[in-house]
């Protein structure tokens, strides 16, 4: 279990990294924290010709609070997300989600941008990004653009990022800081999620004005469940929301659970996440 041959590049600036991406395109992979890429290299599931290590590229590990959102540099680690006070204040869901990612040593090195770009359908950041109305900032030699989560995540390990583009930061909306729930089912501490539910709401006139119910581990990419979102606004009843979500998906089974079992896990996680979101709304801001 050793990585296959590749050429290693360590650009010292973002511009240099973009030049390399421009030159190599599909032949290159970007190495950020490496906590997903290197296992895939070791198992020889990934065989890039070129590896572009962002380790010497400065300025990509900043957490910036904006009026309605928090911008998280692509090289911000999971550990930073767990520990940063601005994240705790504006994106408490993200702080909690970070704690579910792998183990301490993995969180020390793994990055938000790396995880988002990797687009594992059961990973934490993609589903949090969908729940928190997030977007992904991409840059290439020829320009910059921003993709919303729905457009960014396409299928397993596949995103809307073009081969010459670099994920430079990820933006999460902060308007859900008081009304959210996050529930993840892991077999053991630190395992890849089997199913994750992330629920975020914002108050409207006389009730919930906006509801977002996002799930990981149910499809080939993280997905929102519009039926469950409607049910949450209409009923404010976690059980009703959970039933709708359970019936909306037919996740593929594997050694961690059959389709039927995963549907039950969708029910359980949505029930808990929606319940938490409503309880937080009712109690004010217990985690403020």
């Amino acid at each position: 279990m050793k990585p296959p041959k590749f050429r290693y590049h360590a650009p010292s600036s973002q511009a240099e990294a973009l030049d390399l991406l421009n030159a190599y395109g599909d032949e290159a992979v970007v190495l950020s924290g490496g906590q997903s890429l290197i296992p895939m290299l070791n198992l020889r599931l990934a065989r890039p010709a070129e590896v572009i290590d962002l380790g010497s590229v400065g300025g990509m590990d900043l957490i910036v609070t904006e009026p309605d959102a928090v911008s998280v540099g692509a090289r911000v680690t999971h550990r930073q997300m767990e520990a940063d006070p601005d994240i705790a204040r504006h994106l408490p869901m993200a702080r909690d989600a970070a704690g579910f990612i792998g183990f301490r040593a993995i969180r020390n090195r793994g990055t938000v941008g790396g995880s988002v770009a990797h687009a594992d359908p059961s990973a934490e950041w993609p589903v949090v990004l969908l729940a928190l109305d997030g977007s992904v900032d991409l840059r290439s030699k020829s320009g910059a653009r921003c993709l919303g989560g729905d457009d960014f995540f396409q299928t397993v390990f596949t995103t809307g990022r073009q081969a010459d583009e670099l994920v430079v930061s990820v933006r999460f909306a902060s308007r859900f800081a008081d009304n959210w729930g996050f529930s993840e089912f892991q077999r053991r501490t630190g395992d890849f999620a089997v199913v994750v539910a992330a629920v975020a709401c914002a108050a409207g006139s006389g009730g919930i004005g906006e509801a977002r119910v996002a799930l990981a581990g149910v499809a080939d990419r993280p997905v929102r469940c519009p039926e469950a979102e409607e049910a949450l606004i209409a009923t404010e009843d976690p059980q009703a929301v959970a039933e709708v979500a359970r019936d909306a998906f037919d996740p593929v089974g594997d050694s961690h659970g059959s389709t039927a079992h995963r549907k039950q896990l969708v029910y359980a996680q949505v029930l808990r996440a929606a319940g938490e979101a409503l309880a937080r709304r009712d109690k004010g801001r217990p985690d403020g």
């Binding site: 198992l43 077999r187 053991r188 501490t189 630190g190 395992d191 890849f192 594997d254 050694s255 961690h256």
Partner: peptide, 27 residues
């Protein structure tokens, strides 16, 4: 936790520590 799971052709599917689960400290 522990179980070797095979496909229909008797090929082992649980070939990493993320698929074959041994107890961790929290278990």
């Amino acid at each position: 936790f522990e179980e070797f799971v095979y496909d229909d052709e008797a090929r082992l599917l649980t070939t990493t520590f993320s698929d074959y689960l041994i107890p961790t400290m929290t278990d």
